[in-house]
Amino acid sequence: MSKNRIPMEFVERWESFYGKSQTESIIHNLRQDDPRIIVPNLLKIDISNLMLQLECKGFKFKKIKELNGLIVTLEPFNIVSTPEYLSGMFSIQALSSLIPPLTLQPSPYSTVADLAASPGIKTSFLAQQMNNKGTIIAIEKSSKRIPALKANLIRMGVLNTIILNLDSVLFPKLDIQVDHILLDAPCSGTGLKLAKNKRLRPRILNDIFRLAKQQEALLEKAWEQLKPNGTLVYSTCSLEPEEGEVQIGNFLEHHENEAVLLSIPFDIGSPGNKTNWKIPLHTQLIKTKRIFPKLGYDGFFTAILKKVIN
């Protein structure tokens, strides 16, 4: 299968959910390679000083307006070999990864659980928002993914994190209540750019139902451990409604007296309620974000839920 081929099964699905024109745009953008994008680590440096330091070494950048990132337009040598990268002054990533932690906005002295934490880029953004105060409990099921998580958090100077090697479905057994939860759930990854997506094969379609069940279980378990008035961000890098809008719509129906969606404070993407589905989607989904692939962004879905007491 050629690198840029997208199976017809996906094309037909996306046309039914998002229409022909949007699907053409999705396919075009999934095939585009992203430029290198760097994001400053605010625990160590601001964007102006980072630009200044790297421009002295011959790098050139273009600022990204909506989020605090820089597109590398000239890279005279590999940017990851600079002392600035090695000492954690910036990370390299797709901009979509910034949205869940920026949406959660944890306060500095809160307790936050990050339920599928590796490789730790989102965890480090949580720490930046908390100014390295409070406590982050970073949970990762796969022991093989722990070294990358540790290395990233250490490099980025994150000092407020406890890392647990644990299956997140066992999280309630720890019997701790937290103020905020980030659940960037394991998903089919159909929103990822093709250059980094080895999974976009017809058989992944069979996995969507299984993954949706797994996400539902994780969401329910996480919700049990959220304090009243606490917030939970749910996100996936998938274009499939079963892993996004439908998942959250079902959750709202099951928890109608205790869960409300909050608005996401970014002018990026479209409201989730515009997605077509077999039955009308929950009206509150207007507050979720469906982000389609574009320059610097993978396809993504994000929602923020608040636990209310009635």
């Binding site: 647990l164 090697n165 644990l166 057994k173 720890l174 019997d175």
Partner: peptide, 17 residues
């Protein structure tokens, strides 16, 4: 609290601050 709640075969603390 974390140490007492789960059997060690299911769980480990791998880093603390």
């Amino acid at each position: 609290r974390l140490s007492s709640k789960l059997p060690e075969k299911n769980f480990s603390i791998v880093h603390a601050r």
